[in-house]
Write a protein that binds this DNA or RNA. Sequence first.
DNA 1: GCAAGGTC
Length: 711
Amino acid sequence: MHEVIICEKPKSSEKIAGALFPDAMKKKHGKVSYWEHVEGDKRVTIVSAVGHLYSLRPRQSNEEHFFDLEWAPIYEIDKKKGYVKDYLNVIRKFAAGADRYIHACDYDIEGTLIGFNALKYGCGEEALRKTSRMKFSTLTREEIKRAYQNPIEVDYGQVDSGAARHILDFIFGVNISRSLMKSVKAATNRFIKLSAGRVQTPTLAILVEREKEIRDFKPVPYWIIRAELGEGIIAESKRGKIFKRELVDSILEKCQGSDAEVKDVRVRDTIRKPPVPFDLGTLQSEAYRVFGFSPKKTQTIAQNLYTEGYTSYPRTSSQKLPESIGYEKILKNLAKNPRFGVHIERLRGPLKPHEGKKEDDAHPAIHPTGLLPSELSKDEKKVYDLIVHRFISVFGEDAILQTMKVELEIGEEEFSFSRKRVSKAGWMESYPYTKMEDEEFPEISGGDSLAVRSVSADERETKPPARYNEASLIRELERRGLGTKSTRADIIAKLYDRKYIEGKKIRVSPLGENIIDTLTRYCEKITSEELTRQFERELEDIMRGKISKDRVIDEAITEVRSILSDIEENLRDIGKELYRAYQDSRVVGECPACGGKLVIKYSPRNRSTFVGCSSYPDCRTVYSLPKGASVLKSLCEKCGLPMISYGRPRQRACLDPKCGKKKSEVEEVVGKCPECGSDLIKRSGRYGEFVGCKGFPKCRFTCSVDEVPEG
DNA sequence: GCAAGGTC
């Protein structure tokens, strides 16, 4: 009897094998591990998927629209997924033809589909008839054993629901994206990569909405009345923002010549609880706040740390640390590193983590495993240290923040100021990433009279709502239930890649706005959360057997067909507008030669981007860009051209490399050196200008200015 | 080429 257990990912196959058959033989086929266990005449093989092994593709790639889809190995569709082939081959080789199968992927819709497809296409359809299902929510030994001893049936509602999700996303996303690109092609015969989707488009719409709020914002002036009392004390009027100038004047007059009488001094202790353990979103937020890392970068690093065994599974939404992870042992191991040891020594038992609200059935919060890394890159070390310090501080004692609040009266006008200091550091000592307030408390008590140096009105303006950054946008997506913890960072990266958005404080480009405008006209649903909500309702109904998968898909096809035909009717107009917005998005400044627009261009021949005049070929102004450079919004003070940032660490410079330099420092390339092939540079020497090789002193070729070799 | 969702 041959039994096969199929798992979702390598890590869980290792745990499942270890829990059920501690003596099983770990085997390798290429880089991929699997387990074999023999018990009398029963042989058990444990194999693993690596997430989705199969992906959708159109059955006929030459059709105009893609409604007829098929599952194919993901490595055939996506060249970057080559590593999946080895896993699938292990399944094909060692799992096909078994007598019994156990589907042991995560117990959720995607997990059920991953196992189903692996069995159906990797082991053959007959495998499905011999399959039972393990249901577990955590990968603890006890729960794995219990799930193995009490198998259930595969939930085909989940399978259909999962497949429908993939198909619906493809039908909406790919077809609408293609029609947008087609419109540009029809109008201009050019290709620009454009896209729309159930998650990315509402995300862009959120940003566009904020962009419009900022644009339409009318700042209103207001005043804050401040009194300077000496010794660095500045008190503010308790009225807060005052919008009437006359009121400001009358208050200032009232305060004239009076001392400040201290009405009340209150010192209070407030407790600051330790932070909660990291789920992926909070780790991404914190790494952005502390190091400025993009969420995608943090996610990649966390994935590496996990793969190396230093930290736990990163794609979790849990802020809980169950006791079963073994607090003591992890801390004991971490303490071997004195940098962590000093903090761990301070912890007092019994160990109890301060947990957050969010839960995840499949994984605990992100935590160090206790295995100390030997070699980490600079950035990996930053993230690792952050995770370790967070983990330790979660067990720390409460900190105490002391607040002093002083109420004053100056000529019957009420003022106040406050001071803060941490009086007991507690966990804050182990978490060097938060600010510890340490303000002086002045010696003041009720009834005192203080001299007033000056009372003045500070004029300010109301500010528009802040722009999102990547971290705050991820939080917003989470709040709205758009995307998943694993995909949000990628979705945002995609919006940057399409040039829909730009900057750390995210601005929407004209192209991004036009995409939303166009889709609002032709397919408003895809620009809002409505589509996600509709999917959720439909997938729920499929799961419960209230509606068939095929009916939901047929209805979606009808809907998308109608959207596509609406777009088709105005194809050229849509394309013209999109292309114009695309051009506007690339404008970085004004051409100093002809007054036209400088735009970012791409040279396929050199495979590089550069800045050139949009009036080419009439105007041939060009500026090369260093590799990886980005053009900034700020302008050079000397010449008015845009600034660029480039290199590592990032440096800023004018787009024009000659700007601000003396003539002698400017390298003017006039040709190629016939001896070594380097650039020939115009130089000025004692006897006037001459041309020399850039490779000097290695290559000593020189010639006069009018002798420059051709080519 | 195009989506969104798993994962190394």
